[in-house]
Simulated scan of single mutants.
Amino acid sequence: MLNWQKLPELVTVAPEQPLAPLEPQNWLLQMVPLQLNCNDCSIGNYRLGKVQLLAAADGAEWQLQRFTTDYKGSKFNITGVWQPDSALGKSQFNGTFYSPNIGALLAEYQLSSAISGSRSDIGFHLNWPGAPQQFQLSELNGKVQFALGDGSLTEVSDQGARLFSLFSLDSLVRKLRLDFRDVFSKGFFYNKMAGTLTLHQGVAQTSDVSIDGVPGNLSIQGYADLVKRQMDYQMSFAPKVTSSLPVIIAWMVNPATGLAALALDEVFQSAEVISRIQYPSPVVSINPW
C-alpha cells in the first residue's frame, strides 16, 4: 500500500521520428502477478488520486483485471487483455470514465479550456495489434460513446446566436434561477451533448454527435484523422427562436391559449420549421499537441 507516489512524466516519441520495428512480446505470458494500491498517485503533473491495479498472466494471455483511479470524484475504470497470435498479438481494452466536472479536470491537466462544467459519462472499447505498450495511433480501432451534462463551450463564438437564448424555454428555467450565464458569458451554453466515435486505424468518424444548446440544437458529422492531425466535418445548427416569449404572452392573456401556444411551439421545434443553418468545413489541419 502506497500513501503517495509521484512517477516521472512519460516521454513521448516525436511523430517525425521513425519507430523501431515491433516484435512479439511473449514475455508477458510469464509475467508475475502485479498488484498496486496507491492512495495518492500522480504521473508528472497529472494527479490520479487513488489508484488500484491488478494484472496477471496465465500462460495463454496477459490480463489487466483491474485498473481504477478516483480523483476529486472523477472515476476511471478499465479492464483488458493481450492475446498472442502468429504475429504481434492483439490488445483489447474496455472501460468507463465518469467526472462530475470534466471541464475543471481538463483545465487542471492543462489539456483543454474549451469545455466549462459538464458532468461526463464515457464508455470505450479499443483495440490495436501488438502488446499494450506497443500502442500506436495509426493502428487504433474501436468505439467511444460519450454523454455530457449541462455546460458550455467557452471558446466558441456563436455569431449572435446567444440572443436566441432569451426566447428559449430551456433558458427560461435558468432565468428563474437567476442564472444569466448563457446571455452574458462568452461561449455556447448547452444542456447536453452526446455522440459516438468509431475509430479505424487512427481515424475517428461520427455521424450522430448532437448538442442540445440553449440558443439552438447543433449536430455534427465528419471525421478527425488523429495521425495526420486533420479533420473534415459538417455542422448543422437549428436556432431556438420560436420559444418562450409568444408562449409567455399568450399565457398572460389566457392560460388555455398559452397551452395551445406551447403545444404549437413544441411542434414547430420538432418539425424544425425554423431554417437549419449548415456549416460545411473543408479539411483543416489541427495541432492540439
Rank of each mutant, 00 (worst) to 15 (best):
A20C: 00
V81A: 12
Y109F: 14
W251C: 04
A60K: 11
L64H: 01
N77Y: 05
E108G: 04
I248R: 09
V32D: 11
P239W: 08
N287H: 13
G187L: 07
L169W: 06
S118F: 03
V283P: 00
F189D: 12
G49A: 11
Q134K: 07
L28P: 02
A250S: 15
V13S: 07
P288K: 11
Q35A: 06
Y98F: 14
W62H: 08
L259D: 14
P21I: 14
E155A: 06
P239I: 03
L111N: 01
G73D: 06
I102Q: 10
L140D: 05
G216E: 03
L28Y: 11
K175D: 15
A56S: 15
V32L: 13
I220M: 08
M193D: 04
N94I: 00
C41P: 04
G187M: 10
S112K: 06
L36R: 09
F189G: 01
L169F: 06
Q221H: 14
N254G: 05
A56Q: 14
F124N: 04
Y46K: 06
P288D: 09
I78R: 01
S219I: 04
D170H: 12
Q133W: 08
N101K: 08
V283T: 13
T69H: 11
Q136L: 14
G130Y: 03
Y190M: 07
L148M: 15
A260I: 09
V241C: 05
E108Q: 11
A131I: 07
R174V: 02
L64C: 01
Q83P: 04
P246R: 02
K240T: 14
S207G: 15
Q159F: 12
S152E: 11
S285R: 09
A14W: 03
V51R: 07
S243T: 09
L19C: 03
Q30N: 09
W289D: 05
A271I: 00
G216N: 00
N217G: 03
R181K: 14
V203E: 12
D158R: 04
L64S: 00
T198Y: 12
I211Q: 00
V13A: 08
T69W: 07
Y46V: 05
L176T: 10
L218H: 04
R66E: 15
G80C: 08
Q221V: 00
L153C: 04
L163H: 09
I211N: 03
G142W: 03
F164Q: 03
L218M: 15
D225I: 08
W62M: 05
F167Y: 06
V284C: 04
D232P: 00
P132F: 01
V144R: 05
R66C: 08
V283D: 03
S168G: 10
A238N: 12
Q159E: 14
T79D: 01
D40W: 01
W128A: 02
D182F: 13
D179C: 06
D40L: 10
F67H: 00
A194V: 07
L105C: 00
W251V: 01
P280C: 07
D179E: 03
L19Y: 05
P288R: 07
L28H: 04
A87V: 08
Q269D: 15
Q234F: 12
N37S: 13
M1L: 09
N141H: 12
S207I: 02
Y46G: 00
Q63I: 02
V247M: 13
I248F: 15
P282T: 10
G49I: 02
I43W: 10
A250K: 10
V214N: 13
P246C: 08
H200R: 13
P132R: 02
